[in-house]
């Protein structure tokens, strides 16, 4: 990632060939996060190592045989596994890797949101496909989960867009030059993190692939299909964590280090929080969370949006 010597206009996109590198960048960041996660877990268990765990896992899934269950729905099933990583990459195109994103979309925030929502379909399809009860229940659990996390998530994103009065991610960063949005919209930031975990069925929101369903939506996937599904989940988590940086944490702003390094550092910090939360909380089931989400998080995020819109009006009036 070359840091441009001259600061480009905030609306410009990176050179086209960055689109080729983007998936690799995402994979590298997700891989490091997975390695650190495994190392933390190994340390908690009093074992050395853990850093090679992602390599072992990827290898054994590459070596593993693929399988198809009895009277399965292979199209939906395979599509579910493929859509997850592809959606993560597509969501990441609007995230500035430094000062500029791969694709500078005027509707960047909406695009990010739209790509994330594909996960909703992907997990359900992966759960439905294999004609297996546990897998099916896992898929439906994720649909219920989506109903709970999606609205607070959208309100949180929109609040950031409202603060900048733009749907372009570059403008949102530019609007944070004086003050990071996390300061004026802390509720939206926290809700964004919570819903990012829920979207990547991560951490306490892993009921769709939980052990009580023997792996739920992922329970019948083996070999490279499993690799795509679980890898796609990591990519999605990484993309969501990276998006928190331009939306709330001032993008690449920071002293000493170049912008890309700050984006990386902040992304890894957000990922660390998400990884920590997984160890900290038991699985949160949607029959409980829906109520909290709708009766607490939605009103809170709406109130947050109201506060921000008043701030925007006041600024406009000045």
């Amino acid at each position: 990632m070359d840091d441009p010597v001259t600061v480009p206009p905030p609306t410009a996109a990176l050179a086209w060939w960055w689109a080729l590198l983007l998936p690799l960048v995402l994979i590298v960041v997700a891989w490091s996060a997975a390695a650190v996660d495994a190392a933390v877990e190994a340390r908690a268990a009093g074992r050395p190592g853990g850093l090679t765990v992602p390599a072992h896992e990827v290898t054994r899934l590459l070596v593993g045989q693929r399988r198809r269950t009895l009277a399965a729905d292979p199209v939906l099933w395979r599509a579910g596994a493929v859509v997850l990583p592809v959606a993560a990459v597509l969501a990441a195109v609007v995230i500035p890797l430094g000062t500029r994103p791969v694709a500078d979309l005027g509707v960047g925030v909406v695009w990010f949101n739209a790509m994330e929502v594909l996960a909703w379909a992907a997990v359900w399809m992966a759960g439905w496909g294999p004609n297996s009860v546990l897998s099916l229940v896992g898929g439906y659990r994720f649909v219920a989960q989506g109903l709970a996390y999606e609205l607070p998530h959208m309100f949180a994103i929109i609040t950031a867009a409202l603060g900048a009065q733009s749907l372009r991610v570059g403008d949102i960063i530019a609007a944070q030059q004086d003050l990071w949005f996390v300061v004026i919209m802390p509720v939206a930031f926290v809700v964004f993190l919570v819903s990012a975990a829920a979207m990547a069925f991560w951490g306490p929101f892993d009921a769709p692939v939980a052990g009580d369903l023997a792996g739920g939506a992922a329970s019948e996937l083996s070999g490279v299909d499993r690799l795509l599904f679980l890898g796609g989940r990591w990519l999605l988590l990484t993309a969501a964590a990276a998006m928190a940086v331009p939306l709330f944490l001032g993008g690449g702003a920071g002293p000493l280090l170049p912008a890309w390094a700050w984006v990386l550092v902040k992304t890894l910090l957000v990922l660390a929080v998400l990884v920590w939360a997984r160890r900290r909380f038991p699985t949160i089931r949607m029959d409980r969370w829906s109520e909290i989400s709708w009766m607490v998080l939605v009103p809170l995020t709406v109130a947050q949006a109201l506060v921000v819109s008043i701030v925007v009006l006041a600024q406009g009036g000045l």
């Binding site: 268990a45 023997a214 792996g215 992922a218 329970s219 019948e220 996937l221 083996s222």
Partner: peptide, 16 residues
């Protein structure tokens, strides 16, 4: 298994 850091599989599809 805990000593060796070998995970316990939850489903045959993920079993070696």
């Amino acid at each position: 298994l805990a000593r060796r850091d070998w995970p316990i599989a939850t489903t045959p599809a993920d079993t070696d």
